[in-house]
Design a protein around this nucleic acid. Sequence first.
DNA 1: CGATGTGATGTAAGCGCATACATACCCCGT
DNA 2: ACGGGGTATGTATGCGCTTACATCACATCG
Lengths: 341, 341
Amino acid sequence: MNAHRKGPTAADVARAAQVSTATVSRAFNNPEKVAADVRDRVLRVAKQLGWFPHPAGAALASRRSWLIGAVIPTLDNDVFARQVAALQARAMQEGMTVLIGSFNYDPEQSLAHVRTMLARGVEALAIVGESHPPELFQMIEARGIPYVLTYGWRPDIAHPAIGFDNACAYARITRHLLDLGHERFGVIHQPLHNNERVGQRLLGIRQALAERGLGLRPRHVVEGPARLEFGAAGLERILAAEGPVPTAIICGNDALAIGALHAARARGLNVPRDLSITGFDDSEIAAWTEPPLTTYAVDYAAIGQRAAEYLLARLEGRAADVLGAVGGGLVVRTSTAPPPG
Amino acid sequence: MNAHRKGPTAADVARAAQVSTATVSRAFNNPEKVAADVRDRVLRVAKQLGWFPHPAGAALASRRSWLIGAVIPTLDNDVFARQVAALQARAMQEGMTVLIGSFNYDPEQSLAHVRTMLARGVEALAIVGESHPPELFQMIEARGIPYVLTYGWRPDIAHPAIGFDNACAYARITRHLLDLGHERFGVIHQPLHNNERVGQRLLGIRQALAERGLGLRPRHVVEGPARLEFGAAGLERILAAEGPVPTAIICGNDALAIGALHAARARGLNVPRDLSITGFDDSEIAAWTEPPLTTYAVDYAAIGQRAAEYLLARLEGRAADVLGAVGGGLVVRTSTAPPPG
DNA sequence: CGATGTGATGTAAGCGCATACATACCCCGT
DNA sequence: ACGGGGTATGTATGCGCTTACATCACATCG
């Protein structure tokens, strides 16, 4: 690979503008320290020569990379995309740029991403979730850079984190259904593997049920990919189970819920009269399904924005009171109703 | 900001391993050039000291940043997210990392992103669309780095590009409807502003219509944000127009089409019996709407992957025959049918 | 057995910039 | 007119690494 083209250097600009390289550097980085006429001359010459500070030289001398790393499961999910977009917007205001790595729910890959990001000199890291190899956190600690976990948050979490309490959120959904009078529940959820958030959610459901002396039957809990297709297949499977069938189905996200909605209709069931179904995330389409979906909204943009806030503050040695839970809440539409009979 | 922590340097490792810094560097970058025992010793000492090559030093000395820039309209859209994910996956195989910038259909922002990316030392750039200030392309040319435009592609495009021909794609959709017997068409499309692809699409529709001696009435063409809500509002507006109303509605993407589907149902129209509606992108949900949506699939992942291929090849001075059109085609489902009567 | 080649390692020169420190200059007060 | 203090600019060093080149040990072969 020969990626290099020899361009002009600060020295060339200095010579052409009849100043020293120090003044060239100052004209770019501390304009107020340079007399207006000199600065203008330098900037003009630089533009003419097509020069601007070479990042590696600048990074080396100033010991700053102006890079923040964001490690997320996948970009193919609005939830993370929104978060990253907000992080990036805020970071850009401070002149920092964001490096994104998607790890596809694979701890190997998250480790690899953190490794290369550190090798690229990121000054801070935002990472989705807790399910990562201990080595990942050790590497970060060893580097001594600020980091923050995003998406999930729990009162007893062992890292700086910004997000929402998955257990609480799903307990909230469950109580909504309990209050409507439901007693038999089904759950269609994402893979538990390497995703502590999903475990938290099941926990939240189970706790809310336990409060009323209820429980979840294993045959009414199905796990699979977070896609419409599995939402449909999952509901089929639950309804095919032995014995009395659930009257309420709690889904891991809106896509699963929409799939379930379809499967229910295909079986001639009326939602919500015969079966209540809930989603999660309050995606755009949730308001437009037939019937409109009861779901749970989380302010994902706030997660990204506050994560940026936190990291920026840490980099400046400031304190920032932004860790913890972000806003969110149940959005009741018409896919939930009292159970039949 | 004090982002710096003084860590060990190559010299520390060299000393501890009783070799020169050159050998340390080689042990990391050209392991095969170092005797096995020495290499192991160096790597062990390095790990023990928690050292690895400082990126800025490495970048400065080797004149490589291993960075590729991706400039896209927004991450909030699956279409671009998929493309970026593929680009990134391919780039990572070669040890390069991808810097992402979303410009929100604002040329100012795309310019700003390219500027900071160049300042970060990216070695190549992938950019969505042609609607950017000339200055943007000048900056890239001045830097002399490879770049490729993605998403849109035309036979007469003036840049290296990978994507699909928006005009052809929409002509194809239009002909499908023409073949079904439609003669009056409506269009619900995204903002034309700073988005040459949308203009291309309208062009394609008009050309296909012209071939059969037909045209588009201005009052049957509405422009607005690419959201469900506007899909619905747009259809309302078209149906409220004076005179005979369209029997086929061509939408700029699946979200608009789904919105239109809803509005049609709300007005008591049966799709496709009373009205045909088409989408674009073949998003996951398109197969699950009521009725399932006729739409147009584009292999967005291939765009990202081939863009990476092209840039990588250029960086290595190789030729790569990947520019041009990617796969795609009409997906006929049941939201289209012959016009009523 | 000495000339020559080969592979492993060391030496040292930058890579392009920021910045602490030194210097020159100017303004002002006295 | 002179000194003090502030401001604009220059000087020179080093950031941490890679790599061309020099060197050295050793094996090979005529």
